[in-house]
Design a protein around this nucleic acid. Sequence first.
DNA 1: TTTATTTATCTTACATGTAAACTATTTTTG
DNA 2: CAAAAATAGTTTACATGTAAGATAAATAAA
Lengths: 151, 151
Amino acid sequence: MTDGQYTKRQKESLKLWIELLRYSNKLEQIIDDKLRQNYGQNISRFDVLSQLARAKPEGLTIGELAGQLIASKGNITGLLDRMQKDGLIEKETKKNDRRSYLVRHTKKGNELFAEMAEKNAQWVETALEDIDIDHMKEFAQFLSKSRNSLD
Amino acid sequence: MTDGQYTKRQKESLKLWIELLRYSNKLEQIIDDKLRQNYGQNISRFDVLSQLARAKPEGLTIGELAGQLIASKGNITGLLDRMQKDGLIEKETKKNDRRSYLVRHTKKGNELFAEMAEKNAQWVETALEDIDIDHMKEFAQFLSKSRNSLD
DNA sequence: TTTATTTATCTTACATGTAAACTATTTTTG
DNA sequence: CAAAAATAGTTTACATGTAAGATAAATAAA
């Protein structure tokens, strides 16, 4: 399959796709490494704690949580089990629906999240320090808008 | 940790970071699903075949290959083992360095890649169809430049 | 040349991601 | 209400990602 068989639009789409993957994966890797080295956590766990931190105080069901997560999608049963074992989250059976239960962060989980979030803001700021703020705004809006058309 | 404790620049960096993760993960997911459903392969395997397709005919060592991969980073031993078992790649011990060996695609692997690449170009084009081509170019250049400053 | 170091890759153990089949419960439909 | 369908989550099996330590070969140093 040579380049000649692709349309101009396909070539540009592929270029953008590759660059997006490269950039995003690299950035994700940088933050993931930092979280692991400094807190023994990874982006999936940070993501879970982040969603629980902004959730209503009684917590979220598995389904609600799964729908909000950015990184991990699939089986979060094991992830939550391990986080519960580490004392970061707790579960409570729902009275009105015995299939379901609520997940919320513990005091320990929330304190850890607060620490990680602060550091994360610094790491991300450093990683993006060469981008001027106007470009950042424009770029973020562009991505947000474009994402809606992916559905 | 409330928003008030972040600087303006940190807030914009975090916004951009989140949007990048959301967009890129979603796009990656769309393509990964398509590859799985249509070819029983995933992005990591597509990535490997893609690098081998553009490599010198004698192939790449594990180290060279690992350095070029976009998606997967860690242990590619198992990935290559499974791909070899599926007849997509082959290995050849290097004569001058017995620690190392060369990996290259088989005929079957390259034919599969050609098919997947063509379909992939169409899927990516469709996913990005709402973005005009000038924005695509600008965006890709921006990402490419910004990525260098991540190192 | 012998020892030490570096390099290339593997092995192990475990965490996470994916798909499909399964269980229990709730809701819908006739 | 009883059967069917939908929902919430789990389980299983396997693929992949990560880190640390091990192995073997090549290279550098004494």
